[in-house]
Design a protein around this nucleic acid. Structure first.
Lengths: 356, 356
DNA sequence: CTGAAAGCGCTAACAG
DNA sequence: CTGTTAGCGCTTTCAG
């Protein structure tokens, strides 16, 4: 493996090559024969700079490979050009895709993206509580599926800090979310249309379902669809899958080995659906012959295994939130909009009519 | 657990939300009746501060909710307490887990983690080229599976910037990697032990195969194992799977529909293996009856679908690299060690003896 | 349109 | 052990 190629980079090679030293604004100023103030103005594209002066300054700056020291700029202006994204965890399909979307926008817009994880309420609280500290670090924060209680929202609102939320919808900050009731409805309706009546649900219990409960809303949506045909969701058929593959496996195993198993399963995420698919297979059940499965997300694997699902545009969530933040930071005062990201049913081969 | 690990609020709201104004070191100094220098020293745990003074300063600082303005500290010291992690992409199983590992360590050690993506050589070059700019932003950089050519390594080496690499091994910077030849060997040997002789490989073309070629090494390892029994890897049976699920599907389809298909497939990543599994199923092939499949990684889904694989400890890669960087930044001059992360075969149910 | 000068808040000599 | 005093490099009034 070792690269023992021709040119071995010598560690302590004296700078003989044109390694450009960092230059300061003052050096540029002297070299250009103007004041530092002018350099600052010229380089930042401010008005009130003669075109000729600007050209000259720009040239000199390029020659000297000058770039403003962000720490100094930050100290002087109080703006850091950095956005923090707060996620419960980063190594899951959903969150890593949200971060990817945000990262793309941030890079494009010249902002740095800091990743903060807040796996539990305690740490989340700490993140919010030290927002004062962060405020000097970051210009804005994106909270992803991190339920902020009223008093923390208020704390955040008091700070000079742009905030956006993904998932939660508040009346103080811009947000992006999907209509989860609709998501649930879409999935259940599809199953109903196929003729299913006994529908199992693999979801999760929200710890504090009061004001921000994604699984609850998806389940409610499914209930709504069933209600429209006079049916109902059977409580015994709603089990916890913890939003993990394994959890989905276990949940489906329980569901399918019960007395009167459902003819279809609605998993609240594709990963849980994968687990369910594996469980069905291990039980010798045919999908969709013996049991239909529908998920939510449209994970990369879904198209490959033919999973019917309700597609979400996850990276878009991150991108929209980041864009809202950047806009606000640029001073473009825009209404604190609540972007509703679309979701659509993608029918593939894990769903079909129930056996008679 | 709850929705995707979503963080829910604790019901108990703090009695009041005392919104504390940010205070400066000077305010603390006057309040404590000492000089700013003493405050700085006391709060940073420097020696040469009377215990009583320190206690008093700490108390006042707490009362005033003082926290050093990082921008100011950064400007004064030149250190930012920020580490950047450069990944080709962030929304893949491997990279998001590496980032997670690094993030955990950074948080623990009081460093901020900046995520930079460099999906191609051009952007990677840009990242390196602007390291000067970054230098003022970050104290260190972790390059994850980002092949740095000699001249870029040299550029980086010249800067006052701690660097660590994951995957690539250089003689200038600390690194962490797995012995990919051994990984390939482990997988192939397992297949050989089962009696397979015609082994297909799903891999990828390295962007710059010259000096840093993970797929090449894994393939070489497999070739080595085959060589030990006088066999060889058949070039026609080595196909590109692009390290994606879909790529794996396509590659396996091609492999298995050929004239004389292999009795076993070694996929260089679990995700490609998942694709291969799906392809086999779609072709009506039994696994492992008709074809065995072994992957690399030990993805969460692997245990659920019973995929035999070579397990890597991915989050550990990120953690070790981050820790090396932090150590260096703390001045603990330690040899630029090359950490070799372990990998081990995990036999499950997708591999078995070939049909006769 | 441009320059001088006063900070931004903190750290780091250097005295004492 | 503690205070004084320069800066760190940039932005931003305020004059001119």
């Amino acid at each position: 493996m070792n690269y023992r190629g021709a040119v071995t980079p010598s560690t302590k090679a004296p700078a003989s090559s044109p390694i450009v030293e960092r230059s300061t604004i003052e050096q540029v100023a002297t070299a250009a024969g103007v004041s530092v103030a002018t350099v600052s103005r010229a380089l930042r594209g401010l008005p009130n700079v003669a075109a000729s002066t600007r050209t000259k300054v720009e040239r000199v700056a390029r020659e000297l490979n000058y770039r403003a020291n962000p720490a100094a700029a930050r100290l002087a202006t109080g703006r850091s050009h950095t956005i923090a994204i707060v996620v419960p965890l980063i190594n899951s399909w959903y969150f890593s895709n949200v971060v990817a979307g945000a990262e793309a926008v941030c890079t494009e817009e010249g902002y740095d993206l800091l990743v903060l994880t807040a796996p539990n309420a305690e740490l989340r609280h700490e993140v919010v509580a030290t927002a004062a500290e962060l405020e000097r670090h970051t210009d804005g924060m994106i909270f992803v599926e991190v339920a902020l209680p009223p008093h923390e929202l208020e704390q955040l609102g008091r700070r000079r800090l742009a905030v956006a939320t993904i998932g939660q919808q508040t009346d103080t900050f811009p947000s992006v979310h999907v209509d989860n009731v609709r998501v649930g409805s879409l999935a259940a309706q599809h199953l109903l249309d196929l003729g299913h009546r006994r529908i199992g649900v693999i979801g999760a219990q929200a710890e504090e379902p009061s004001f921000f409960d994604v699984p609850g809303q998806r389940i409610a949506g499914a209930g709504l669809a069933l209600g429209r045909i006079g049916g109902d969701l059977e409580p015994a058929l709603v089990v916890d899958g913890q939003f993990t593959i394994e959890g989905g496996y276990d949940a489906a195993s329980r569901l399918l080995s019960g007395e009167n198993p459902p003819s279809a399963i609605f998993a609240l995420s594709d990963e849980m659906a994968f687990g369910a698919l594996a469980a069905a297979r291990d039980m010798g059940l045919d999908v969709p012959g013996d049991v239909s499965v529908v998920g939510v997300d449209d994970h990369e694997l879904s198209s490959v295994v033919g999973l019917t699902t309700v597609r979400q545009h996850v990276a878009e969530h991150g991108a929209v939130a980041a864009r809202a933040l950047v806009r606000r930071l640029r001073g473009q005062r825009t209404a604190p909009g609540h972007h509703v990201s679309t979701a659509e049913l993608v029918v593939r081969s894990t769903t079909g009519p129930p056996m008679l």
